[in-house]
């Protein structure tokens, strides 16, 4: 009886709270929701795996897979900051609830070794042939860094690195590689067997193709 006035007033007044789920609150811009990757841009350099504080990312560069444990990830953003190709990003939506624990795997294209270059190389005298091989080795870009077998060998075959010295992943191999050719630049030109001829390689840059450095080792040492 006494409540009729209150009831009528409350029926026609606007509600004090938001009518969720009909009306949801907008999420702020910088919110760290969940991690995602564009697998086509990934070069499998494993920088994200090395820097992750909770060790939730696994990268297999031979098979070309990038695996994430979504429940272990704390969405801190370190991998986004160190990725050289900027293919990782953190979106605004939080991860949906999962019914069971599992891993998320993305399959990309790994670096595939090209067929042997000796079959297609032009017939030239020994010196020029060695230089041509060296140039082809010179254009081996990020591929050497991925395969671990390649890295120690690359420091011997120093020729490739100066061309790609600006690429950040060629971390340890690059600085050493850069110094050696400059020191022995002039004398090498005359010697066909010596592979360390960078000055020539630098001036005659061919197009940059991802090439297999291991392939080059076999050619150059043969």
């Amino acid at each position: 009886m006494y409540m009729t006035k209150n009831v009528l007033r409350n029926l026609f007044k606007k509600s004090a709270t938001r009518l969720y789920p009909l009306e949801k609150r907008e999420i702020f811009e910088n919110v760290r929701g969940a991690l995602d990757i564009e697998i086509d841009k990934c070069i499998f350099c494993r920088a994200c795996q090395l820097r992750c504080p909770s060790q939730c990312i696994t990268v297999d560069n031979k098979a070309g897979t990038w695996t994430l444990d979504p429940m272990a990830c704390v969405v801190c953003g370190v991998c986004v900051a160190v990725c050289p190709k900027k293919c990782l990003h953190i979106g605004k939506q939080y991860r949906a609830p999962l019914l069971e624990r599992g891993l998320i795997t993305h399959q990309g294209t790994p670096r595939v070794p090209k067929p042997k270059a000796a079959a297609t190389a032009p017939v030239v005298p020994a010196e020029q042939n060695a230089e041509a091989e060296v140039q082809k080795a010179a254009v081996a870009t990020p591929a050497p860094v991925n395969t671990e077998a390649a890295t120690p060998e690359i420091s011997e075959t120093v020729a490739e690195k100066p061309v790609e010295a600006d690429i950040s992943q060629a971390a340890a191999a690059a600085p050493e590689a850069v110094e050696k050719p400059e020191a022995t630049g002039t004398e090498i030109e005359t010697n066909a067997e010596q592979i360390l001829e960078t000055p020539q390689a630098e001036s005659e840059k061919t197009e940059v193709k991802p090439d297999d450095a291991e392939q080059k080792k076999e050619d150059l040492s043969a």
């Binding site: 910088n30 760290r32 704390v74």
Partner: peptide, 24 residues
Amino acid sequence: MDIMEATAGNRVVISTNIIGGVRR
């Protein structure tokens, strides 16, 4: 909490300090 979420991304564990400065 809204201020933290809008400026740093999370409500409590904001992960903005690094050695040598801040991240954001």
